[in-house]
């Protein structure tokens, strides 16, 4: 039973939200990107979270209760497989034979809302981490008259 288990769990949350913010920023920055190294327009990316056991394998026997505490991990950044938006723009250098340009299927509003959610989750994890840290600091003061 360690103070730092709570802080490790919270820091995993912070790291996961940070990855998500990076992905969202990348999406927003490339909302009009028509050329990528792989060819074709930029494909929207999304993070996939997964809850993994917070304890190491050796410590699992130390758990006092049946349910394992879970930390969060980003297991995958997967690219959106939706079809790109076709925009009529014959003057564009990447227009196809019909004059349509394949633009990334990214909705700016959606990405902004996701960013707000990610920020809020990041702040919540920060509060949780500070709470655990504050409890540890208070415990050090026990007996100090």
């Amino acid at each position: 039973m360690s103070f730092f288990k709570a802080m490790n769990i919270s820091s995993s949350g912070l790291a996961a939200q940070r990855v998500r913010m990076n992905v969202l920023s990348s999406n927003l920055a490339n909302v009009n990107t028509t050329r990528t190294p792989e060819g074709g327009p930029y494909k929207r990316e999304d993070v996939v979270f997964s809850a993994t056991n917070a304890s190491d394998f050796e410590n699992m026997l130390d758990e006092d209760y049946g349910t394992e505490l879970k930390k969060v991990q980003v297991v995958d950044i997967h690219k959106d497989t939706k079809a790109p938006r076709m925009v009529l723009d014959p003057a564009h250098p990447d227009a196809n034979a019909d004059g349509y340009v394949a633009m990334p299927n990214i909705q700016t509003m959606t990405e902004m809302v996701n960013m707000i959610a990610a920020t809020r989750a990041f702040e919540a994890n920060t509060t949780a981490l500070n709470s655990a840290k504050s409890m540890a600091s208070t415990a050090i003061e026990i007996g100090r008259a």
Binding site: G13, A121, A128
Partner: peptide, 27 residues
Amino acid sequence: ALNQRLERQHVINSNVANAETPGYRAL
């Protein structure tokens, strides 16, 4: 009570870290 509150803090932190994980159920 101090021990118990520390364990409760672990559980709360775990819930908060997994606030967006699909399929996670709060403890």
